[in-house]
């Protein structure tokens, strides 16, 4: 059984903003899939459809046996516990310690609101520390998150996602705001952890080379349409570049415009969902 399956999924934000068009996709457990595409091509929307932050306008999204489009609120929350997510801008609380930030990953399975390290059970703190050690930042556990470098912050964010003990890890351009060396560190960390924990990873990227190096499978998106779906081993650099190629320069400009709207909608979409 596939871990994630999308059938004829379309996501429409408004009449002329379509972020996903009739997408079909089956993703096997334990595989590393890379999404490639321009900004605004629908990568983020696709990831958000998978953990139910967006609901499809039509079609069905099934993740780990749960039908996301029709799931009730609690079902959706249970699903999200199984799906960790890492963001481009890390999304850590700067004024909180590294360890507490990691602990917040476990909130989905704890009861009641928490504030301060003390409010987390010792077992959770210990688990958080283990994951922090795994990403190589155990020594920085009591430092404020905003004192860390970008690469370090992203590793903390990975640790936060791991505390959930997820089966699927979604990464939304995790290295887009990092320098090449930190990018490699973060990518190899994700790949290594995916192997060790047998995670299903879907990672959106900008860089073709990183995609070919780390991915098992590459999916290309353009204006919400799946334009490529091949094993990474079969994709040449030129093939992958086609997704960005100038042939679609004018369309890309249109996508850019739509993308601006889409990002705004994506940001508010999460709030409107409730």
């Amino acid at each position: 059984m596939s871990a994630i399956s999308l059938e004829n999924v379309t996501k429409r934000f408004s009449a002329d903003t379509v972020a996903a068009r009739d997408i079909n996709l089956e993703i096997d457990p334990g595989t590393f899939t890379v999404l490639l595409g321009l900004s605004g091509s629908g990568k983020s929307t696709l990831l958000r459809l998978i953990n139910g932050l967006h609901k499809p306008t039509s079609g069905s999204v099934t993740v780990l046996g749960t039908e996301v489009g029709t799931a009730r609120k609690t079902q959706l929350r249970h699903l999200r516990r199984e799906v960790g997510m890492v963001f481009q801008q890390f999304h850590l609380v700067g004024s909180m310690s590294t360890l507490e930030n990691v602990c917040t990953g476990a909130l989905g399975s704890l009861r009641g609101p928490r504030m301060g390290l003390f409010s987390y059970p010792k077992a959770v703190r210990q688990r958080a520390l283990e994951q922090l050690d795994r990403v190589g930042l155990a020594d920085q556990r009591f430092q404020r998150a905003d004192t860390l470098s970008g690469g370090q912050q992203q590793r903390v964010a990975v640790a936060r996602a791991l505390v959930q003990q997820p089966k699927i890890l979604l990464a939304d351009e995790p290295v887009a705001s990092l320098d090449p060396e930190s990018s490699n560190q973060v990518m190899s960390l994700i790949a290594q952890i995916a192997r060790e924990d047998d995670l299903t990873v879907i990672c959106s990227l900008h860089q073709v080379e990183l995609a070919r190096h780390w991915g098992d499978r590459i999916i290309g998106l353009r204006q919400g349409v799946k334009v490529m779906d091949e094993l990474a081993a079969d994709v040449s650099s030129d093939d992958a570049m086609r997704i960005y190629s100038a042939q679609w320069a004018s369309e890309a400009a249109a996508a850019e415009r739509a993308g601006g709207q889409e990002e705004q909608l994506a940001a508010s979409g999460g709030a409107n969902l409730r």
């Binding site: 959706l76 999304h91 990953g105």
Partner: peptide, 13 residues
């Protein structure tokens, strides 16, 4: 920055 909250939301909190 609404990001941290959204990160927790996507973690099922």
């Amino acid at each position: 920055d609404d990001g941290p909250r959204r990160a927790l939301e996507s973690g099922g909190s």
